[in-house]
Write a protein that binds this DNA or RNA. Structure first.
Lengths: 221, 221
DNA sequence: GTCTATATAATGATAGAC
DNA sequence: GTCTATCATTATATAGAC
């Protein structure tokens, strides 16, 4: 991620190449030969430095998580107006975002780490907003954080389909950013359903659950 | 999916075995030999009936989408109280849900089909709710539908991490269902942020975007 | 540290007997 | 339709020269 890849030492070039390929193609579809070719070294050197393909993945995982610790802003970015310009100023973030997205999709250890990191970040941002009186916190704070974290990361995982429906191709396309930003703001400020909706749901929760009648009342659909 | 797998014809057993394995392990990690073993046939017969591993996947895709057309309720299910009992009554849905989740994660053709189907379903449900006066629709209806569809499917893709944080293991665990249901109802009814939040965001959108200052105002984080 | 050459294993797909 | 046997390819990982 530092300046020119050709200036990096072979070991760093290998890690960078692996990071980019894992993020773009996924772990399974990426071969050691591809990584070696992109890094400009032999396949044998990849194994010599990292032991195995799996250990190379772990190194990439650690590297990305450490990168996120230093660049805390990255995990707070959603499809809001500033995103496009922010990414334009920091082109070295793109492979990291691809790695995060692919890592979440593939599951495994890195997905848990990203999710947990997002939860922590979301919680502190929510604390900040609450301290400024900008939020009226639901009773279940932990569930709120979980819901927000899963929603934002879920949107990232579905960014391709989401952006396409909104007339763009990427999450940071201007049209996508504007339309999503306005809707999210509206929904998260005024809500989407009338209070009558909430009352029927709460009534269903206090009565016998599982009779099947409360299903259509789910506000998530 | 019909009664006992042993009663099915070999071709149907192969399709069922492939569906379950693709959903549980993903397409890449599943081998033709595994499918054949689970279906109780030889690897050669798998190819003889479906031509190739990729064509077998396409058959599974088509089968699942057709299944969804008949069982429309399935795609409207979120982690609400009725889910657990509903799935208990229909154990044959579990492999389908796993296939949907894994298919969304792996991307490709099936992910688009699932997303588009969810959008259609979400739109009609929103229409229904609006007709009953239960929803105050944002200006951008299409973006609202896209947001709701991506949110619910994103939650499905992250159900493992989400459920774990809420003290469960699956999306349909009682604790998870109850806590999520209440928070979602609260957020989607009353909203999460104060109107001041919305005003600052709209002000940022009408002025010059991309100065970086409107980033922390994103209500999604 | 870096390379070439190769061992070893597993996979998707084919061929042909029954 | 169903099987066994096998081909051809590709992958990770190793061994050893330089």
């Amino acid at each position: 991620m530092s300046s020119n890849p050709a200036d990096l030492l072979p070991q760093a070039r290998i890690r960078l190449a692996a990071l980019e390929l894992f993020g773009a193609q996924g772990f399974e579809k990426t071969t050691i030969r591809q990584i070696a070719a992109r890094a400009g070294v032999s396949p044998g050197l990849v194994i010599h430095h990292f032991g195995s393909k799996n250990r190379l993945r772990e190194h990439c995982d650690d590297w990305v998580m450490e990168f996120l610790e230093q660049e805390k802003t990255l995990l707070t970015l959603g499809p809001q107006p500033g995103l496009r310009d922010y990414l334009a100023e920091h082109p070295e973030y793109e492979p990291v975002i691809a790695y995060l997205t692919t890592g979440l999709r593939e599951g495994g250890a890195i997905a848990d780490r990203i999710y947990n990191r997002t939860v922590t970040m979301t919680a502190s941002l929510l604390d900040l907003a609450e301290a400024q009186g900008l939020v009226h916190m639901p009773q279940d704070r932990e569930a709120t954080v979980a819901f927000l974290a899963a929603s934002s990361l879920g949107l990232l995982m579905l960014s391709e389909q989401f952006a396409r429906q909104l007339g763009g191709q990427q999450l940071d396309d201007p049209d996508v950013v504007e339309r999503y930003g306005l809707v999210a703001a509206e929904v998260f400020t005024h809500g989407l359903f009338t209070p009558a909706y909430l009352e029927t749901l709460q009534a269903a929760n206090t009565t016998t659950p599982g009779d099947g009648n409360e299903r259509p009342r789910n506000p998530d659909h």
